[in-house]
Design a protein around this nucleic acid. Structure first.
Lengths: 186, 186
DNA sequence: GTAGTATGTTAACGATGTTAACTTGCTTTT
DNA sequence: AAAAGCAAGTTAACATCGTTAACATACTAC
C-alpha cells in the first residue's frame, strides 16, 4: 500500500501552518511556537524537520514559489507564439503574484532575514522573465538583452514596492507596468 | 547659557545607538535592550521617549532620511540648469544612498515592520525625484509625467532590490540605471 | 528479538518587549 | 521658602520567544 499520504505529515502541516502564520503576522512577528501549536505539535517538534526558524520560513517560501513556477509555466505555454505578449504578461502576473502574497515579499526581499538563499528564491522567480527577454533578443531584435532585462526586472520589483508603499493601486500599477514594458519592446 | 547640549541628551543617544544597532544587527535582530545598554541607560528608559520599539526605529529612519534630504537638496541646486542631468543624478544618488545604508531599506520597504508611516518615509525619499520629473514635463517636454515618474521610481526601487539580491553589483546597476533613464528622457 | 534510528514529548535556559511601582530632581505655585 | 507637580530615570516582574537537552516511543533492519 502506498504510504505517501503519511509521509512527513507533520512537516507538511508545519509548512502550511507557517504559511498562514506569515500571512497573518508577517515576517517580523513570525512565531515558531505558534506555528507548532497551529500544526498540533509541541513547540520543539519543528526542530526535527527544520534546522531553525529561518529554515522553516525558507521552506514556506519555497512552497509558495512553486505556485509561481506553475503559473509562469502556463503563461510561457499560452503565449509561446508571441514573445512580446509573454514578457508583458509574465511581468504583470509577477506583480499581481507578489501583491497577492503580501507578506512573502517582505521576507524574500529583506536580505538579512534569510541567510544567503534569498537570491536563490528571487532568481527562481525572475528566471522565466529573464529567459523570455533573452529569447526576444535572440529572435533577431536588435536590443541590449542585458539592459532590457535590467529595465523590466527593476520596473517589476520597483512597481511592487510602489504598490506596497501605497504610491499606487495594484491595478493602476499593473496597467502602468504594461504600458512601460510595451514601450520598451515595440 | 545655552542648554542646547543637554536637551534630550538621552533621546539623541538612543537614536544614534539605534542607528548602529540597525547597521550591525539588521531590522530582524534589532534589540531595544541592547540599544538602551549601548546608550548607557536602563532597558526601560527608552519608553520615556518612544512609545515602543517600532517608534524608536521610526525615529532612527527619520534621522537617516535627513541625510538624503540634505544630499538631494544639494543635487537640486547643483543641477538646477539641467533637469535631465538632475533626474539622472538624483536617481543614481538615491540608489547609492540605499545601498550604503544597507539595513534601512529593509525596514522601510517592509510594510509590516512600521505601522502606516512607511509611505511617509518612502515619499519623503522619492519626492525630489518626482518633483524633478514634474518640472521636466512642465518645461514643455511632451511626456506623460505620471508614467515617467512611475518608470523612473520603479526602476530605482527595483534596482535597489536587484543589487540587494545579488543580481548585479552596485556600480554596474548604477550605470545601467543611468543608461535606462537617459533613454527615457532624451 | 534486539539494536538503532526517526520523531515526538516535556522541561529548562537566556534574551526580548513591555509594564508597574518606585525614586529623584527640577519647576512652578502659593 | 515650602509644597505640589511633573519629567525622566531606576529596578523588578511578566509573558513570550528561539533553542537545546534529556527522555519516550514506535517503526525498521539485521
Amino acid at each position: 500500500m502506498d504510504n505517501y499520504t503519511s509521509v512527513d505529515n507533520v512537516r507538511a502541516r508545519l509548512i502550511i501552518a507557517g504559511l498562514t502564520e506569515l500571512e497573518q503576522h508577517g515576517a517580523a512577528d513570525f512565531s515558531l511556537r505558534r506555528v507548532a501549536k497551529e500544526a498540533g505539535v509541541s513547540c520543539a517538534a519543528p526542530y526535527r524537520h527544520f534546522k531553525d526558524k529561518d529554515d522553516l520560513v525558507r521552506a514556506v517560501i519555497e512552497y509558495v514559489l512553486e505556485g509561481w513556477t506553475l503559473l509562469s509555466g502556463q503563461l510561457v505555454t499560452i503565449f509561446a507564439s508571441d514573445i512580446r505578449a509573454l514578457i508583458s504578461e509574465l511581468s504583470v502576473a509577477g506583480l499581481r503574484f507578489w501583491i497577492a502574497n503580501g507578506n512573502f515579499r517582505t521576507v524574500i526581499m529583506a536580505s538579512g532575514t534569510l541567510g544567503s538563499g534569498e537570491r536563490g528564491a528571487l532568481s527562481s522567480f525572475d528566471a522565466p522573465i529573464k529567459q523570455a527577454v533573452d529569447r526576444y533578443a535572440a529572435e533577431g531584435q536588435i536590443v541590449d538583452s542585458e539592459l532590457l532585462s535590467f529595465k523590466i526586472l527593476s520596473m517589476l520589483y520597483g512597481a511592487i514596492i510602489l504598490v506596497d508603499g501605497g504610491y499606487e493601486a495594484t491595478e493602476h500599477a499593473a496597467e502602468r507596468l504594461r504600458e512601460a514594458i510595451a514601450s520598451e519592446i515595440l
